[in-house]
Each structure stands twice: as structure tokens, then as C-alpha cells.
Design a protein around this nucleic acid. Structure first.
Lengths: 192, 192
DNA sequence: GATACTATCTATAATTC
DNA sequence: TGAATTATAGATAGTAT
């Protein structure tokens, strides 16, 4: 139950933040849809989670709303200036490069390279992540006859079965990213 | 007072619609801001009223969020006939994007997500990789007082509190909250 | 990690000022 | 027109499963 009203500041606890994100994102999308329907407004709502996943809602299509947004006087980038377009391209490319670089480093570290840079806490986090990943891999893998020590660990856990459920609320507006509706969970949203 | 719940369909009465639009828009913007703050999400919300007026909220800047949105592989479809220069840029960007995407998937799989796509052999490889990484992490980490992997195997009854799956890749983006209130958009975002 | 529950908090429809 | 005022519908924090 709502014990008390919360402060509007970043939620520290990661799990709680994730749960709140999921709930409030749904609520937000629902409200956007209602506003759009009730008042005949054209709406685009773009949300990137803290982990970088995209969720979007649009009464028509995000692209279309963005186009319209671009038409606004104050947003009329002087398309006559060819340099501006290229500038945008360049910044885009820079962002992509940076992202790719970060992920490369992360991958290396998950593979056990580049570890010397890390402090004890970071190593612990890395270890946790690896253990978690390993345990999940082992849970997924059909355990055909291969008896290894990890399996014993795995079998200690509860036999969780993952059933992908995708309920559907009415969804008139097209929701682009989440296949179904406001609701699609983090795990089901595959990019690309 | 709320005498009864309303149907979510276009409000016929123009005045009532206008009033509802104003109220609900504020509510929506507030919720967007709360979600952004609470969960460290990057959000852009673009609203065109039925009369064509623009209202927008963005945790950072609308432009920036749109840029990021454009980075999504599925949104890379591009403008009609870009100049040769732009075409080159686009292909570069596509490559970078593809690369980033592949690494994202790899990262997810190393964390134990998206595993359902994989076959048995791939899972085995993934497992090997994780084991290798883990072992290297454990070798690197000074083992003071912390159980290492093997010991955990021995202590099978361990009440493993699996931390949470790591998060935090991207996005340390600064959040520039709206100056004060979301209504300010009424006046500040009015356009001809 | 998703879902269910529910006590509270929050948004807001209808109305008055 | 717009700003306050409620009473109620709706959202959700904390918890359990």
C-alpha cells in the first residue's frame, strides 16, 4: 500500500526503481492515450529507460509527430545551411561511436579482459553480473545428460518457468516500440 | 466532483474539451517529469492540441531525445534523396548502429537475457565464455574474506541473494527539469 | 521479473465562485 | 473565462506470491 507519498527524486534501490519505472511508464502511456482520445490531440511520447531501452507511444506515429514538431518556427533548423545537417550527422555519429565503445569495454570486462583497471567494488559487481548471467544461461539450457558442477547450483533454485504473457489493453493509438501496448515489459522489447 | 467515470472518447463539448485538455496536459507533463526523475529516464513528450498548438516536455531536450530516437535501428530509414555526402554518412551510421546493436545483444546474452533465441551449442559457448570471464575476475580480485565461486558450490545451501542484474550502461544524461511547473509551457511554448 | 493486493495518495469531473 | 472546491475515479508504493 502507499505508506506515504514519495519524494520525487531518483529511487536508489535498483529493483524498486525498475518496478516503479514499469508501473509508471504504463500509467503515463495510458494517460497520454486518454488525452489524445478525449481532446483530439496529436501526441508522441518517447521514453528511454535508464538502461537505454526505448519505449514510445504515439497517437499517430512518432515520426509524423516529430515531423510536425520540426515544422514549428523555433525548430526550423535552417535546412538551407548544409553544414547544419552535417553537424547533426556528426553528432549522431559521435554518439554512436561512444556508445559502441562503451559497450565494447563492457564486453571485454565481462569476458575477463581489461580487469586491471577496475577496483574491488567494480570487480565484485562484475562477478555478480557474471554469476547471474551464468545461472540464467544454465537455467535456459536444456540439461541433457551433461552433468557439471554448475548444474547442482542451478537445481537449487526454484524451477521457474517463464511464460511470456502479453495482455492487451485497448490500444487505438499505435504504439511503436512495444509490440502490443503500453504494457510490454522490459524483457519483451527487442530493439531492432 | 467526479460524479462518474468518463468514457475515453472525444469530448464533444468544445469548452469542456478545452478545459479537460488543459488539466490533463498538466497532469501528463507532471507524470512525465516524475517518471524521468524517479527512474532516471530520458523522456520527450510532444503534444499538439486540437487547435494545433504545441506543448512539449523533455527531461533533457526534445531535440536530443529525438536524436537518440533516430539512432534506433528501426528508425534509420532515411530521407528521400540524400546527397552523396549524406549517403556516406548514413551508411557509416548504419554500420555503427549495427555494431552497437550486436554488442547490445551480446551484452544481454552475457547477462542471461534474450537466451530463448539461442540453440544448445550457442548456449554452451555462452556458458564457457561466462565461466572463463568469471574465473578471470576471481583471479584478479583479491579474495579477502569473500567466498569465491568454488566455495559457493560447496556451500550449496547458501541463501543466495542474487543482486540484481546489472544495469547502467548508457545514459548518465543530465536531467534538466523544467524550470518550475509544467504549465509554464502554456505561455512559454506558445507559438504563433 | 511479473503479477496481485490494497491502503493511500493523486488526478480530475463537475460545480461553484 | 478562469480560478477554487470537492467528491470520486484512478494511480500507485509497499508488500507478498
Amino acid at each position: 500500500m502507499v505508506r506515504q507519498r514519495i519524494q520525487i527524486k531518483k529511487i536508489d534501490n535498483v529493483t524498486a526503481r525498475q518496478v516503479t519505472f514499469s508501473k509508471r511508464r504504463r500509467g503515463l502511456f495510458k494517460k497520454a492515450h486518454e488525452l489524445s482520445t478525449l481532446c483530439d490531440a496529436e501526441i508522441a511520447l518517447i521514453v528511454f529507460s535508464a538502461t537505454g531501452r526505448l519505449f514510445e507511444y504515439a497517437s499517430s506515429s512518432t515520426r509524423q509527430v516529430i515531423e510536425r514538431h520540426n515544422l514549428q518556427p523555433q525548430n526550423l533548423v535552417q535546412l538551407n545551411q548544409p553544414s547544419l545537417e552535417l553537424q547533426l550527422e556528426n553528432s549522431t555519429r559521435a554518439m554512436l561511436s561512444k556508445e559502441a565503445e562503451e559497450r565494447t569495454l563492457e564486453l571485454r570486462q565481462l569476458r575477463g579482459e581489461e580487469l586491471h583497471e577496475l577496483g574491488f567494488e567494480e570487480l565484485k559487481k562484475l562477478e555478480k553480473s557474471l554469476e547471474g548471467g551464468l545461472s540464467r544461461v544454465l537455467k535456459t539450457k536444456p540439461l541433457r545428460g551433461k552433468l557439471n558442477f554448475q548444474m547442482q547450483i542451478v537445481n537449487m533454485g526454484q524451477p521457474q518457468e517463464q511464460g511470456q504473457s502479453s495482455e492487451s489493453i485497448t490500444n487505438n493509438g499505435s504504439t511503436v516500440a512495444p509490440p502490443q501496448d503500453y504494457d510490454s515489459s522490459d524483457t519483451s522489447l527487442k530493439l531492432g
